[in-house]
């Protein structure tokens, strides 16, 4: 189980997270949604241990991420998969080498077994035949799928997806969602999906969390979110307010937001 407890984080005096809390049970995938610039990716990077919170804790099965021994942290990392926004493929390597990289570096498999695993993983994501291409030669959707193959090749227990479908056309969005749903069934990982693809993303997640104003404002099943009394959440879901105007409707407590506001109006 992953528990995010009362997370605070500021960048250059601007408070992005103001006490966000969320729980993800084993085998459960949670969709993390909310307006742009609210710090969804930041929250996700905290869960992965890539950023250190100003205060608050990230707890895995009762153990605080930032109080772990080095060996435990490495062991924990080995159970992790992270799909970055732009794929983060190593651009000095081919697709094949990218997917093989975690196996070569972290396991003692021989090259024949590596080849088998990599090719089957590439087949799963529908990239058969693209193995000798370099990331720069791939389209956005292909890069995402290659990155997904690399994340899944180690059969992770925890998967974090940072906007897996942003900037892709609807057909590919659908195929990537189907791919995630599929692998979830196959591997049974727990995970968090940061996404703007509403309501498509609801089709395969067990829970939905809304990050708004630096806190998790709503947690519930996809069915519950349509029935919520919280007007802001409801409005956000319906998309009745554009993201920018949305921001102005909110009381601004932190002084840092004043600057942002001026930039918006001028």
């Amino acid at each position: 189980m992953i528990a995010i407890e009362n997370l605070h984080k500021s960048f250059d005096g601007v408070e992005v997270l103001k006490g966000a809390s969320l729980e993800v049970r084993d085998g459960e995938v949670v969709a993390l949604i909310g307006p742009s610039g609210e710090g969804k990716s930041v929250l996700l990077k905290h869960v992965a241990g890539l950023m250190r919170p100003d205060s608050g804790r990230i707890v895995f099965n009762g153990k605080d991420l930032w109080n772990l021994q080095r060996a435990d942290l490495v062991a924990l990392r080995n159970r992790f998969g992270f799909l970055f926004q732009n794929g983060a493929l190593f651009d000095s390597m081919t697709v094949y080498d990218n997917v093989a990289f975690p196996l070569r570096e972290k396991t003692r498999l021989n090259e024949k077994d590596v080849r088998e695993r990599v090719l089957s993983e590439l087949e799963q994501v529908g990239l058969t035949g693209a193995d000798d291409k370099y990331p720069a030669q791939l389209s956005g959707g292909m890069a995402k799928r290659a990155a997904l193959a690399r994340a899944l090749v180690r059969s992770p227990e925890i998967m974090l997806f940072d906007e897996p479908t942003t900037g892709l056309d609807p057909i590919i969005v659908h195929s990537i969602h189907a791919l995630i749903a599929d692998t979830h069934k196959r591997l049974g990982f727990s995970g968090i999906v940061v996404s703007h693809a509403i309501p498509a993303v609801f089709s395969f997640v067990q829970k939905v969390a809304v990050l708004y104003g630096g806190v998790i404002r709503f947690v519930g099943t996809p069915q519950e979110i349509f029935k919520t009394d919280d007007t802001i959440v409801r409005d956000f879901i319906r998309g009745s307010l554009p993201t920018d105007a949305f921001r102005f409707g909110e009381p601004v407590p932190a002084e840092a937001n004043v600057q942002e506001r001026q930039e918006g109006t001028v």
Partner: peptide, 13 residues
């Protein structure tokens, strides 16, 4: 900036 360094961290490398 393309998060390849973060990816290494995630891979535990």
């Amino acid at each position: 900036i393309t998060e390849q360094i973060d990816e290494l961290e995630i891979l535990g490398l």
